[in-house]
Simulated assay, not measured.
Amino acid sequence: MALRQVARVSRATGIGLCALGVFWGAFAAQMPAFKDRAGVGDGLFGVLLLGSALGGMAAMALAPQVGRWLGPRVLPLTGAFLALAALMPLFIHSGLTLALALVVMGVAMSSLDLAANVRISELEHDTALPLMNWNHALFSAGFAVSALLAGMARRAGLSPEAVQPVLALVLVAMAAAMIEARRAPPPVPRRPRPRLPPARPGRRRWRRRRSCSRPSLPRTRPRPGRRCISSAIWAAPRARAPLARRCWA
Score class of each variant (00 low, 15 high):
118 V>F: 05
58 A>H: 11
99 A>K: 03
241 A>S: 11
13 T>R: 05
42 D>P: 09
175 A>L: 04
155 R>D: 15
103 V>R: 02
71 G>Y: 03
210 R>N: 15
157 G>F: 13
47 V>N: 04
145 V>G: 05
37 R>V: 02
10 S>F: 08
6 V>T: 11
219 R>C: 14
179 I>Y: 02
99 A>L: 13
143 F>G: 00
113 D>V: 09
157 G>Q: 10
15 I>Y: 04
31 M>Y: 06
195 R>P: 10
153 A>R: 01
80 A>L: 08
149 L>F: 00
153 A>T: 03
81 F>V: 04
30 Q>I: 01
43 G>N: 07
34 F>E: 05
129 L>S: 01
213 S>P: 12
175 A>M: 08
238 R>Y: 13
82 L>Y: 00
140 S>F: 12
228 C>E: 06
177 A>Q: 02
36 D>K: 14
246 R>I: 08
167 L>I: 02
118 V>E: 00
18 C>G: 08
212 C>N: 03
30 Q>D: 03
118 V>Y: 14
33 A>G: 03
151 G>L: 12
108 A>G: 09
124 E>Q: 09
191 R>N: 07
20 L>S: 06
112 L>S: 01
152 M>A: 15
197 P>T: 01
39 G>I: 07
32 P>E: 00
147 A>F: 00
103 V>P: 00
27 F>H: 06
49 L>W: 07
109 M>G: 07
129 L>N: 01
168 A>D: 00
92 I>F: 08
155 R>C: 03
187 P>C: 04
14 G>I: 07
244 A>E: 10
247 C>W: 03
237 P>Q: 08
67 G>T: 13
219 R>E: 11
245 R>S: 12
22 V>L: 10
237 P>L: 02
32 P>Q: 10
90 L>K: 00
79 G>D: 05
28 A>R: 01
38 A>E: 05
177 A>D: 02
247 C>I: 14
233 I>E: 07
159 S>L: 10
204 R>P: 10
195 R>T: 15
35 K>V: 12
170 V>L: 13
41 G>M: 04
170 V>C: 14
124 E>V: 03
49 L>V: 06
221 R>L: 14
164 Q>C: 14
46 G>R: 02
4 R>G: 00
92 I>P: 02
9 V>A: 04
220 T>K: 14
